[in-house]
Protein backbone atom coordinates (compact mmCIF):
# COMPACT_ATOMS: atom_id res chain seq x y z
CA UNK A 1 0.00 0.00 0.00
CA UNK A 2 1.17 3.52 -0.80
CA UNK A 3 0.33 6.00 1.92
CA UNK A 4 0.92 9.75 1.88
CA UNK A 5 0.47 11.45 5.26
CA UNK A 6 0.13 15.21 5.60
CA UNK A 7 2.58 15.85 2.82
CA UNK A 8 3.70 19.45 2.27
CA UNK A 9 6.29 21.15 0.15
CA UNK A 10 6.87 24.81 -0.48
CA UNK A 11 9.33 26.69 -2.63
CA UNK A 12 11.11 29.95 -2.08
CA UNK A 13 10.92 31.08 1.51
CA UNK A 14 7.80 29.06 2.08
CA UNK A 15 5.82 31.61 0.10
CA UNK A 16 4.69 29.26 -2.64
CA UNK A 17 2.99 26.14 -1.32
CA UNK A 18 3.35 23.62 -4.11
CA UNK A 19 1.84 20.81 -2.08
CA UNK A 20 -0.27 21.69 0.94
CA UNK A 21 -0.87 19.01 3.55
CA UNK A 22 -2.18 16.20 1.36
CA UNK A 23 -2.97 12.69 2.55
CA UNK A 24 -4.10 9.70 0.55
CA UNK A 25 -3.85 5.94 0.31
CA UNK A 26 -3.49 3.78 -2.76
CA UNK A 27 -4.19 0.08 -2.38
CA UNK A 28 -2.47 -2.80 -4.16
CA UNK A 29 -4.20 -3.65 -7.42
CA UNK A 30 -5.31 -0.08 -7.98
CA UNK A 31 -4.69 2.28 -10.87
CA UNK A 32 -4.65 5.70 -9.35
CA UNK A 33 -4.96 8.83 -11.50
CA UNK A 34 -3.56 12.12 -10.33
CA UNK A 35 -5.18 15.03 -12.10
CA UNK A 36 -4.84 18.77 -11.97
CA UNK A 37 -4.17 21.87 -14.02
CA UNK A 38 -0.62 23.03 -14.82
CA UNK A 39 1.34 23.91 -11.70
CA UNK A 40 -1.17 22.26 -9.37
CA UNK A 41 1.47 20.17 -7.56
CA UNK A 42 1.26 16.84 -9.41
CA UNK A 43 4.93 16.58 -10.35
CA UNK A 44 6.05 17.88 -6.96
CA UNK A 45 4.05 15.14 -5.23
CA UNK A 46 5.43 12.47 -7.53
CA UNK A 47 8.99 13.72 -7.04
CA UNK A 48 8.55 13.44 -3.28
CA UNK A 49 7.38 9.85 -3.60
CA UNK A 50 10.30 8.75 -5.77
CA UNK A 51 13.00 10.49 -3.74
CA UNK A 52 13.72 13.52 -5.92
CA UNK A 53 12.32 16.15 -3.54
CA UNK A 54 12.47 16.01 0.23
CA UNK A 55 9.07 16.90 1.77
CA UNK A 56 8.98 19.81 4.22
CA UNK A 57 6.44 17.91 6.29
CA UNK A 58 4.63 14.60 6.28
CA UNK A 59 5.58 11.02 5.53
CA UNK A 60 5.37 8.60 2.63
CA UNK A 61 5.07 4.86 3.19
CA UNK A 62 5.25 2.04 0.70
CA UNK A 63 4.30 -1.29 2.31
CA UNK A 64 5.03 0.29 5.67
CA UNK A 65 8.54 1.31 4.59
CA UNK A 66 9.15 5.02 5.11
CA UNK A 67 10.41 6.14 1.71
CA UNK A 68 12.64 8.83 3.20
CA UNK A 69 13.85 6.79 6.21
CA UNK A 70 14.84 3.69 4.28
CA UNK A 71 15.27 4.92 0.71
CA UNK A 72 17.23 1.94 -0.67
CA UNK A 73 14.62 -0.57 0.40
CA UNK A 74 11.77 1.58 -0.87
CA UNK A 75 13.42 2.43 -4.18
CA UNK A 76 14.02 -1.22 -4.95
CA UNK A 77 10.22 -1.58 -5.09
CA UNK A 78 9.57 1.57 -7.13
CA UNK A 79 9.95 2.39 -10.81
CA UNK A 80 9.59 5.93 -12.04
CA UNK A 81 8.91 7.33 -15.50
CA UNK A 82 9.47 11.11 -15.58
CA UNK A 83 7.64 13.55 -17.83
CA UNK A 84 10.75 14.20 -19.94
CA UNK A 85 12.68 11.10 -21.00
CA UNK A 86 16.16 12.41 -20.23
CA UNK A 87 18.65 9.52 -20.37
CA UNK A 88 22.37 8.98 -21.05
CA UNK A 89 22.52 9.81 -24.72
CA UNK A 90 25.98 8.32 -25.25
CA UNK A 91 24.92 4.84 -24.17
CA UNK A 92 23.30 2.33 -26.47
CA UNK A 93 19.72 1.39 -25.70
CA UNK A 94 20.68 -2.11 -24.62
CA UNK A 95 23.52 -0.80 -22.47
CA UNK A 96 21.12 1.48 -20.62
CA UNK A 97 18.66 -1.36 -20.00
CA UNK A 98 21.46 -3.61 -18.77
CA UNK A 99 22.71 -0.83 -16.49
CA UNK A 100 19.28 -0.50 -14.90
CA UNK A 101 18.94 -4.29 -14.59
CA UNK A 102 22.39 -4.49 -12.94
CA UNK A 103 21.42 -1.88 -10.38
CA UNK A 104 18.23 -3.75 -9.51
CA UNK A 105 20.20 -7.00 -9.51
CA UNK A 106 17.95 -8.78 -12.01
CA UNK A 107 19.41 -12.19 -12.96
CA UNK A 108 20.48 -12.65 -16.59
CA UNK A 109 17.72 -15.00 -17.78
CA UNK A 110 14.94 -13.00 -16.18
CA UNK A 111 16.20 -9.72 -17.58
CA UNK A 112 16.42 -11.18 -21.05
CA UNK A 113 12.85 -12.40 -20.86
CA UNK A 114 11.52 -9.06 -19.64
CA UNK A 115 13.60 -6.88 -21.95
CA UNK A 116 12.62 -8.90 -25.00
CA UNK A 117 8.96 -8.90 -24.02
CA UNK A 118 8.73 -5.13 -23.69
CA UNK A 119 10.99 -4.42 -26.69
CA UNK A 120 8.47 -6.29 -28.80
CA UNK A 121 5.45 -4.64 -27.21
CA UNK A 122 6.90 -1.15 -27.79
CA UNK A 123 8.52 -2.09 -31.10
CA UNK A 124 11.95 -0.85 -30.14
CA UNK A 125 13.98 -3.96 -30.92
CA UNK A 126 15.36 -2.52 -34.16
CA UNK A 127 16.99 0.44 -32.40
CA UNK A 128 18.24 -1.19 -29.24
CA UNK A 129 21.82 -1.44 -30.49
CA UNK A 130 21.95 2.26 -31.40
CA UNK A 131 23.20 5.16 -29.33
CA UNK A 132 20.32 6.77 -27.41
CA UNK A 133 21.38 10.16 -28.78
CA UNK A 134 19.98 9.04 -32.14
CA UNK A 135 16.52 8.25 -30.71
CA UNK A 136 13.44 10.39 -31.27
CA UNK A 137 11.52 11.73 -28.27
CA UNK A 138 9.01 8.90 -28.48
CA UNK A 139 11.70 6.24 -28.69
CA UNK A 140 13.38 7.62 -25.57
CA UNK A 141 10.04 7.58 -23.83
CA UNK A 142 9.62 3.92 -24.74
CA UNK A 143 13.13 3.11 -23.54
CA UNK A 144 12.46 4.75 -20.18
CA UNK A 145 9.19 2.80 -19.92
CA UNK A 146 10.96 -0.48 -20.65
CA UNK A 147 13.70 0.32 -18.15
CA UNK A 148 11.03 1.02 -15.56
CA UNK A 149 9.39 -2.34 -16.16
CA UNK A 150 12.55 -4.46 -15.91
CA UNK A 151 12.39 -4.79 -12.14
CA UNK A 152 8.67 -5.63 -12.10
CA UNK A 153 7.99 -2.84 -9.59
CA UNK A 154 5.58 -2.95 -6.70
CA UNK A 155 4.82 0.71 -7.34
CA UNK A 156 4.86 1.89 -10.94
CA UNK A 157 4.77 5.65 -10.94
CA UNK A 158 4.48 7.71 -14.11
CA UNK A 159 4.43 11.43 -14.74
CA UNK A 160 2.40 12.29 -17.86
CA UNK A 161 3.25 8.95 -19.49
CA UNK A 162 1.13 9.33 -22.63
CA UNK A 163 2.87 12.49 -23.85
CA UNK A 164 4.99 11.74 -26.90
CA UNK A 165 3.77 8.18 -27.41
CA UNK A 166 2.19 7.08 -30.65
CA UNK A 167 -1.42 5.75 -30.40
CA UNK A 168 -0.38 2.12 -30.50
CA UNK A 169 2.27 2.46 -27.79
CA UNK A 170 -0.13 4.49 -25.74
CA UNK A 171 -2.68 1.68 -26.02
CA UNK A 172 -0.04 -0.90 -25.12
CA UNK A 173 1.03 1.11 -22.11
CA UNK A 174 -2.56 1.20 -20.86
CA UNK A 175 -2.73 -2.58 -21.26
CA UNK A 176 0.49 -2.97 -19.28
CA UNK A 177 -0.84 -0.70 -16.55
CA UNK A 178 -3.95 -2.85 -16.32
CA UNK A 179 -1.83 -6.02 -16.27
CA UNK A 180 0.35 -4.68 -13.43
CA UNK A 181 -2.73 -3.79 -11.46
CA UNK A 182 -4.17 -7.29 -11.98
CA UNK A 183 -0.93 -8.66 -10.56
CA UNK A 184 -1.61 -6.71 -7.37
CA UNK A 185 0.82 -3.88 -8.07
CA UNK A 186 0.12 -0.19 -7.65
CA UNK A 187 0.01 2.08 -10.68
CA UNK A 188 0.13 5.78 -9.86
CA UNK A 189 0.17 8.29 -12.69
CA UNK A 190 -0.47 11.92 -13.43
CA UNK A 191 -2.12 13.07 -16.60
CA UNK A 192 -3.82 15.88 -18.45
CA UNK A 193 -5.71 13.52 -20.68
CA UNK A 194 -9.01 13.18 -18.91
CA UNK A 195 -10.43 10.42 -21.10
CA UNK A 196 -7.49 8.21 -20.21
CA UNK A 197 -8.07 8.81 -16.52
CA UNK A 198 -11.78 8.27 -16.86
CA UNK A 199 -11.45 4.95 -18.66
CA UNK A 200 -8.42 3.54 -16.91
CA UNK A 201 -8.39 4.62 -13.30
CA UNK A 202 -9.94 2.81 -10.38
CA UNK A 203 -9.72 5.97 -8.34
CA UNK A 204 -8.86 9.56 -9.10
CA UNK A 205 -7.54 12.50 -7.11
CA UNK A 206 -7.86 16.04 -8.40
CA UNK A 207 -5.25 18.40 -7.06
CA UNK A 208 -5.35 22.17 -7.41
CA UNK A 209 -3.07 24.77 -5.87
CA UNK A 210 -1.39 22.07 -3.82
CA UNK A 211 -4.59 20.74 -2.22
CA UNK A 212 -6.59 17.66 -3.05
CA UNK A 213 -10.04 18.94 -3.96
CA UNK A 214 -11.64 15.65 -4.94
CA UNK A 215 -10.80 12.01 -4.34
CA UNK A 216 -12.68 8.83 -5.19
CA UNK A 217 -13.93 6.54 -7.92
CA UNK A 218 -15.55 8.04 -11.00
CA UNK A 219 -18.97 7.33 -9.51
CA UNK A 220 -18.11 9.03 -6.25
CA UNK A 221 -16.82 12.07 -8.08
CA UNK A 222 -20.03 12.25 -10.10
CA UNK A 223 -22.14 12.23 -6.98
CA UNK A 224 -20.37 15.29 -5.62
CA UNK A 225 -20.68 17.23 -8.80
CA UNK A 226 -23.53 19.15 -10.35
CA UNK A 227 -22.30 18.37 -13.85
CA UNK A 228 -22.60 14.63 -13.64
CA UNK A 229 -21.61 13.57 -17.11
CA UNK A 230 -17.94 13.50 -17.97
CA UNK A 231 -14.79 13.82 -15.95
CA UNK A 232 -13.97 16.85 -18.06
CA UNK A 233 -17.01 18.70 -16.72
CA UNK A 234 -16.31 17.67 -13.15
CA UNK A 235 -12.69 18.73 -13.55
CA UNK A 236 -13.56 22.12 -14.98
CA UNK A 237 -16.23 22.76 -12.36
CA UNK A 238 -13.95 21.86 -9.48
CA UNK A 239 -10.84 23.66 -10.64
CA UNK A 240 -12.70 26.80 -11.66
CA UNK A 241 -14.50 27.10 -8.35
CA UNK A 242 -11.22 27.23 -6.49
Amino acid sequence: MLKLENLSKSYGKGEIKAVDNISLEVRPGEIFGFLGPNGAGKTTTIKMIVGLLRPDNGRIYLDNIDVWEDPLKAKSKISFVPDTPQVYDKLKGIEYLNFIADIYGIPADLRQERIEKYLDIFQLRHAIGDIIGSYSHGMRQKLVLISALINDPKLFILDEPMVGLDPKSSYNLKEIMREKCNEGKIVFFSTHVLEVAEKLCDRIAIINKGKIIALGTMDELRQHSKEKESLENIFLELTENE
Binding site: K92, I94, N98, A101, D102, I106, P107, A108, D109, R111, Q112, I115, E116, R125, H126, A127, I128, G129, D130
Partner: peptide
Protein backbone atom coordinates in the same frame (compact mmCIF):
# COMPACT_ATOMS: atom_id res chain seq x y z
CA UNK B 1 19.80 -1.44 -36.95
CA UNK B 2 22.94 -2.23 -35.05
CA UNK B 3 23.15 -5.89 -34.31
CA UNK B 4 22.37 -6.98 -30.81
CA UNK B 5 23.50 -10.45 -29.93
CA UNK B 6 21.92 -12.79 -27.47
CA UNK B 7 24.81 -12.27 -25.02
CA UNK B 8 24.00 -8.57 -24.91
CA UNK B 9 20.76 -9.35 -23.13
CA UNK B 10 22.45 -11.57 -20.62
CA UNK B 11 25.36 -9.42 -19.64
CA UNK B 12 24.99 -8.93 -15.93
CA UNK B 13 27.44 -7.36 -13.54
CA UNK B 14 27.60 -6.13 -9.97
Amino acid sequence: GAEVRLEDFQRSSL
